[in-house]
């Protein structure tokens, strides 16, 4: 594509402003609808994010005014901080496993539940969403994975003769990540799952009826040719939600494997961020971590969106 550059200088600035103003006036109603949201969003989300990104180029300990240090925080993180590199590796590992599996599990369960009669369907939705809605209840996993012989999983495996002595599921670096991934997956049928349920409910029934006529033979063909293409907006939404949650795993790990975990075996980028921000009060470094994580997520999102465009083709 040849870029044709029209020199801006030819149009007087006054004319350009008045053109822009005419455009705004023409779309007055649209901007009025958007205004309340846009105003609040700018003040309470955009500005804080921009300020944090700015702080990532400073040394800021909350007590003294920030000092400009350029890219020093980034250089330290990427070249000097071994723990950060471990955290980076763990985060990509967690994201690569829990993101896709969580996403497809949410989609799959939503789709299966949608086949049930209405009353039972409502009950099943509540059950599958329960781990998300029941707050701190995931600490039951501590009992299940407990490291002594009385922990449910240990005692079961010992009784079955598979192991002879209890495994330290939550403190042994060899098992910790697996245990964490199981709990994260169990918690992950949240936002995406509910939006899939709502999306499935929004599909026009006549599409399915004409599908029967056109010779859709089984549920899998129906899923690929009718259901998925009809809920593309929800698929995109669910994908963004999986990316944001799978890259930001931290809170759930604290009661499970401790903070920091043994040998940093389950240390994530967000764990590292919380360590710098809330414990060492080095907000500059914490902001740099947040910015790096942000770039990684935006990049992943781009790739995933491109893949999702292929659905149903």
């Amino acid at each position: 594509m040849a870029a044709v550059i029209i020199p801006n200088t030819k149009i007087p600035i006054k004319t350009r402003i008045s053109y822009a103003w005419a455009e705004v006036k023409r779309n007055k109603v649209s901007y009025m609808f958007l205004a309340p949201y846009a105003l609040i969003f700018t003040v309470f989300t955009v500005i804080p994010v921009l300020v944090s990104m700015g702080l990532s180029f400073t040394y800021f300990n909350i007590l003294e005014p920030p000092k400009w240090i350029g890219f020093q925080n980034y250089i330290n993180l990427l070249l000097d901080d071994e723990v950060f590199l471990i955290a980076l590796k763990n985060t990509f590992l967690f994201a690569a496993i829990t993101g896709p599996i969580g996403y497809f599990a949410a989609l799959f369960f939503a789709w299966m539940i949608n086949e049930l009669p209405p009353k039972i369907r409502a009950i099943m939705v509540v059950i599958f969403y329960a781990p998300t809605i029941s707050g701190q209840a995931y600490i039951i996993w501590n009992t299940l994975f407990s490291g002594d012989a009385y922990g449910y999983i240990n005692s079961m495996l010992i009784r079955l003769g598979i192991i002879y002595e209890p495994i330290q599921w939550l403190t042994d670096p060899a098992y910790m990540r697996t245990a964490a991934i199981i709990v994260v997956l169990w918690m992950s049928l949240g936002t995406g799952f509910l939006s899939f349920i709502a999306g499935l409910q929004s599909i026009d029934n006549t599409l399915y009826e004409s599908g029967y006529v056109d010779g859709i033979q089984n549920r899998w063909q129906e899923l690929w040719y009718i259901t998925l293409p009809s809920m593309k907006p929800q698929l995109l939404f669910g994908a963004v939600m999986s990316i944001t949650s799978s890259f930001a795993i931290h809170e759930i790990l604290v009661p499970l494997v401790g903070f920091p975990s043994t040998d940093y075996a389950a240390h994530t980028v967000v764990s590292h961020l919380v360590d710098y921000g809330n414990i060492r009060f080095e907000m500059g470094t914490a902001s740099a971590i947040a910015t790096l994580l942000f770039i990684a997520m935006v990049g992943t999102n781009r790739i995933v969106q491109r893949l999702l465009r292929k659905v149903g083709n």
Partner: peptide
């Protein structure tokens, strides 16, 4: 543009925006 900014904002850790938010 506005919509992309809203979606991107979901990807920034809220841990570090707490201080600017408090100042606002």
């Amino acid at each position: 543009l506005f919509f992309s900014i809203v979606v991107a904002s979901l990807m920034f850790s809220y841990h570090v925006t707490a201080i600017p938010s408090y100042l606002i």
